[in-house]
Computed example of a mutant assay.
Amino acid sequence: MPRVLIFSGAGRYADPWHPFEETTAAIADVARGIGADVTINHSTPDAFASLADVDLVVVNAGGGDPHDRPAPEPVWDAAQAQLAEYLAAGGPLLGTHTAAAAFPDWPSWRELFGGAWVRGTSFHPERNYALFEATPDFVDHPIFAGIEAPAGLPALAGRPAVLCYDERYSAMVLGEDARPHLVHETGEKLEVCGWVTGDRIIYDGLGHNARSYESSSRRRLLANEMTHLLSLS
């Protein structure tokens, strides 16, 4: 049975807007649905201490209090080094929603992860039901298996898409190695809200709260992403 570790935002890596307890519970439910053994570790310095037997790390955490960002601390430097070692050894990682703003006290995170939410640059409109599309290069990728284009939208030309109630993260800052796999259209412009870095790191920008996970296509996307990453471990 594959083992999935979810790093869930709390304390240092929580914020006033995101209910990490409920979104972590939803992620865990999807992971168990694909046959995984799930461990939930909240934001404590020992969260990454035992990654030797972990097949997939999921980061569902944020950047902390926006008015008092976490500062580097030796104990957290050590924890982040443990996660970096896991990634360097080829361990797969999935980051959801606020993972793009996580670890502001870890300068290397943005480069490792492939992109970021940048304060003052990135934004999102008000939450609503929205359509998130696969990019052309990922239409036939396993992470979109079984997800079809909604009926009545010929503009998608059969491209798989997710319909859910969520935030549309926009103006994200991507690194050179990030390949967009999920976009939405806002203000007649395509905005990237998901990417793949290398072949073992996926960012899924959906999942603001539990309502996102009420969508069957959103849950299918998450399950497919985890299944794909687990197949590489």
Rank of each mutant, 00 (worst) to 15 (best):
P2N: 08
R3M: 01
L5A: 09
L5F: 10
L5H: 08
F7V: 04
G9N: 00
Y13D: 01
D15C: 13
D15R: 03
W17I: 02
F20W: 11
E22A: 15
T23E: 06
T23V: 06
T24K: 08
A25K: 13
A26R: 14
I27E: 02
A28N: 03
D29N: 10
V30P: 01
V30S: 05
A31H: 03
A31P: 01
G33M: 13
G33H: 12
I34Q: 05
G35K: 08
T39V: 15
S43W: 06
S43K: 00
A47W: 02
A47L: 03
F48G: 03
F48R: 02
A49N: 12
V54I: 10
V57T: 01
V58Q: 13
V58T: 05
V59D: 15
G62W: 03
G64Y: 15
P66Q: 07
R69N: 07
P72E: 01
P74F: 09
P74L: 13
W76E: 03
Q80L: 15
A84H: 11
E85R: 14
Y86P: 01
A89V: 04
G90Q: 07
P92S: 06
L94I: 03
H97C: 02
A100D: 10
A100C: 13
A101E: 12
A101M: 06
A102K: 00
A102V: 02
A102E: 05
D105T: 09
P107A: 08
S108K: 14
W109Q: 11
F113P: 03
R119G: 15
S122P: 05
F123G: 06
H124A: 02
H124M: 01
A130N: 11
E133F: 04
T135P: 09
T135W: 12
D137E: 14
F138Q: 03
F138G: 01
H141E: 09
F144D: 02
A145T: 13
A145L: 10
G146Q: 02
I147C: 05
P150F: 05
P150W: 05
P150N: 09
G152V: 10
L153Q: 13
P154A: 15
P154D: 10
L156D: 02
L156I: 14
G158C: 12
R159E: 07
R159S: 05
P160T: 09
V162R: 03
L163N: 08
C164G: 07
E167P: 11
Y169K: 00
A171L: 11
M172S: 05
L174K: 01
L174E: 05
G175I: 03
E176I: 00
R179I: 11
P180R: 04
L182F: 11
L182K: 01
L182W: 11
V183E: 05
H184D: 07
H184Q: 11
C193G: 07
V196G: 06
R200T: 12
I201W: 03
I202E: 07
D204P: 04
G205C: 00
G207S: 06
A210T: 14
R211Q: 13
S212L: 04
E214C: 08
E214S: 06
E214P: 08
S216R: 15
R218L: 09
R219N: 01
R219K: 11
R220Q: 15
L221M: 11
E225D: 11
E225A: 09
M226Q: 06
M226K: 04
T227Q: 15
T227F: 12
L229A: 08
L229D: 06
L232A: 09
